[in-house]
Structures are given as structure tokens and as C-alpha cells.
Design a protein around this nucleic acid. Sequence first.
DNA 1: GCTCAGTGCTTGCAAAATGCAATCGCTAGT
DNA 2: ACTAGCGATTGCATTTTGCAAGCACTGAGC
Lengths: 151, 151
Amino acid sequence: MQSLVYDLPMSRRTALHGPRCPITFALDIFGDKWSLIILRDMVFKGKRHYREFLASAEKISTNILASRLKRLEAEGLISKARDTKNQSKFVYSLTGKGEALLPVMLELIRWSAKYDPQTGISDNIVNGAPAQLLERLDEDRDALIEEILRG
Amino acid sequence: MQSLVYDLPMSRRTALHGPRCPITFALDIFGDKWSLIILRDMVFKGKRHYREFLASAEKISTNILASRLKRLEAEGLISKARDTKNQSKFVYSLTGKGEALLPVMLELIRWSAKYDPQTGISDNIVNGAPAQLLERLDEDRDALIEEILRG
DNA sequence: GCTCAGTGCTTGCAAAATGCAATCGCTAGT
DNA sequence: ACTAGCGATTGCATTTTGCAAGCACTGAGC
């Protein structure tokens, strides 16, 4: 049975129940294998076009990408518009709700940096969290977040 | 084809590649529909036994629970031991690596509290994040974390 | 020491989600 | 009108999940 709201048949665990667990609420929206990868590409790599997402190292397939973009848009984490410079292209942008996930991603990065022996060897902010980012996360968190979002 | 490391056939996206993305590293370990639910139950609800996890509101099925516990143990996020008070039971406990995910969960809670209209109506720390928790998260974060883990 | 209930977990099979390759509809450019 | 680039959709194989049944081990009662 397809969902009426999304194109995905994903069942929502929290649909008709009373007070909802916030963890479950969040996982139901972006707690799959791909959504956070897409959001990471937008936040840290500035990706905005369909082809760019397809090109990520994790090799998301086109049907899954389309369905995830649709869901993220339906959930209000991203928005979709025609590219003003090229009317045949679309531009995907983060909404405030999507940007508000940056703190979650930063904590994920901090955790991985601590426990992944392969993390921390690259300058790239995503491929290996640099020591510099982690320092600023401790000392200057709000400014760091602002900088990532506006930079 | 089954993985040699876990009982799960899940393919690791980052297996043989160079500098690894910390987001991908984290998602490969617990970025599925259930792992964070189990960890939430341990952190916030103090669950330690198999039957307790099975009883969660999200209705995880027993084979999935078994496979997730095995993976979380293999990844060093939890440990498994006989219950000293009842040798027929096992006790699952968080390791430091597992406890270190609490900040991630707290940011998830903060995000959901902000964007889920149904969150924030319960006293329960998990079923609806209370305003009090969110306040302390802003003002007294380290002590809050310590309190949750030791309380 | 046999039965029995509780606990953790495995197995078999159906259903759902994902991965992959091919193709399609739209827009712009020529 | 033809062509190329872009954002998808479609069909089908594979992988993962969901569900129900049952199995192995432990400890308690008799």
C-alpha cells in the first residue's frame, strides 16, 4: 500500500499514536540510509542540483534519490525551484528546518572523529573531520554553525 | 552474500576507500531504522534485557532485534554479559562508545521538539521532550549528559 | 531427573525497500 | 526539426525487513 503523502510505501511508526517520541519522529523523516547523505552534500559541499547528488561517492541510485528529494521536500527540509540561470535545471535548497539539522550532523562528525581510526586525515570538512573543525565545535560552536550555513 | 563480520548482509559503503566521510561512517554503524531506537531505550529508559527492547512501542521484530544487538556489540557500542542475578538472562550495557552518542540523540530531540507539533506535551523524557530538558540542554549541557548517563 | 515456564534467539517464508539499467519528457540551443 | 543535457520514471532482480513458529538453554518446582 502506497502512502498518500509520499510516493514511498514507508510506514510511519508514530502515525496515529499519542505523545510521540522525538527520536522516532526524526528517524521517520530522515532516518534511512540516504537522506542524511543528501543533506550532508547540501550543507557541507554546497550541492544544489540533482546530478551533483548522483555523483556522490556513496553512489545513490537515481530512483532512490528522486524519492528522497521528494520526501525531504514534502517534510519541509528542502525546497525545489527552477534555476534562474538555466530554466531547464532545478535548484534544491535547504529550508530552516533542514539547516537546523546541522547540529545533529556536527555531533555525528564529532563522534566519528573520536571512534573512526580513519577519520581526521583529510583537510576536507566531510571526508575526514579536521581537528580544526572539532576545536571550533568545542569553543565556538554557534559561530561555526553560522559560518557553515552562510559560507 | 553474508558479511564476514556481522550476520547481516549489509554492505559497507566505506569499506575499502580512502579518507572516509564521518557521516557515512556513523550511518553505516547505526543509521538504520532500529539501532538508534535500541540505544534510546538503553540511554533514556534504562532498558537492559532483550524482552524489554522487544516491548518498545515501535514493535521491533525479534530477528531484527537480534541482528542489531549483534552488530552494535560487534561495533563496540554495547556489551553483553550474563545477568549476575539470573543466569538465564543476559544484560546489555552501553560502552563508552555507545554513551558518546547521547549528544547526537539530544540534538535529535532538540530538532524534533522544535519541528514536531506533537512533541513537548509529556513529562516523559522520551515521549515528548519536555521543556525542562531543552532548557538544561542549552544552559547546562555537560551536567545534563552526565546526569542522564549516571542516573 | 523430569517437567515446565521464562528468556534469548533462529528459521522459513512473505512483503517491502533498494539497486540497476533502460527509457522518457521537458527545455534550450542550433 | 534535431540534438543534448537534465530530472526524473519504469521494470525487474536482489537485498532487507516483517511476521509467525519453533528451538536451545537456564533455573524452579516437584
